[in-house]
Amino acid sequence: MNVLVCVKRVPGTGSTILLTDDGMDVDTRHLGFTIGPHEECAVEEAIRIAADHGGQVTVLTVGPAEAAEQLRDALSMGADHAVLVDTGPGELDPEATADALVQAVRQLQDEAGARFDLVLFGNESADAGHYQVGVRVACELGLPMVGGVKGVELDTDAGTVRWRRPVAAGVEVYESSLPAAAGVAEGLNLPRYPSMRGRLRAMKAVITTLHVDVAPSGLRKTGLRRPAEERPATVVLGSGADSAGAVVDVLEELGVA
């Protein structure tokens, strides 16, 4: 069961996001970066699947050269191979990102003889959130694709996989024939902390770098901005247990107590 996981380098969850002076990009000079939370679960799930069913885990990213840092994070968790498609600084539109990923997968398949039974994505990236890159890649590769997945159940004998996803009305379970793709969501598992041994191994690992040519699509970003916040100043009701009376006054005023 060989698993390919596509990850994205994104600002650390909880970072304060500043914009560049021209308002076209996020100012990355003072930011810490991480693998997107959904994708971190995808890496964890891939490692568990490979441990249970045999096979290898490959992580793939499209982005700047610095995204090698996130590939090493995945390697230190236990992924076997890492592939970087270096598209330089600046953000690609979602069609171009998908195109770069498809070209990379084809190069790995045709030139390196790789074969993937499962291709996992995060449901949406934590920064741009276009909700489509995984679907585009899956379509181009001819794979079925389910999003929002929080449970994976493999039946290797039957050559099928079941994807469990919560929806507003309850829970849906989908079945797909292998090979298959999915967009997973945080909550699928609790990603492990890398071991010291894993970190050392990741430091020494060789990252494969691929080059692709992509063209911009019909969705053109013209700028980023912050919405105006219209919250009035905070009313401090007091401190400690003594504030209980004032708190309950507010609860009654709001009609909830």
């Binding site: 996020v26 970003k221 013209t222 912050r226």
Partner: peptide, 9 residues
Amino acid sequence: LLLEDAELT
């Protein structure tokens, strides 16, 4: 938290 302005052709 962030807004992106864009053109769709």
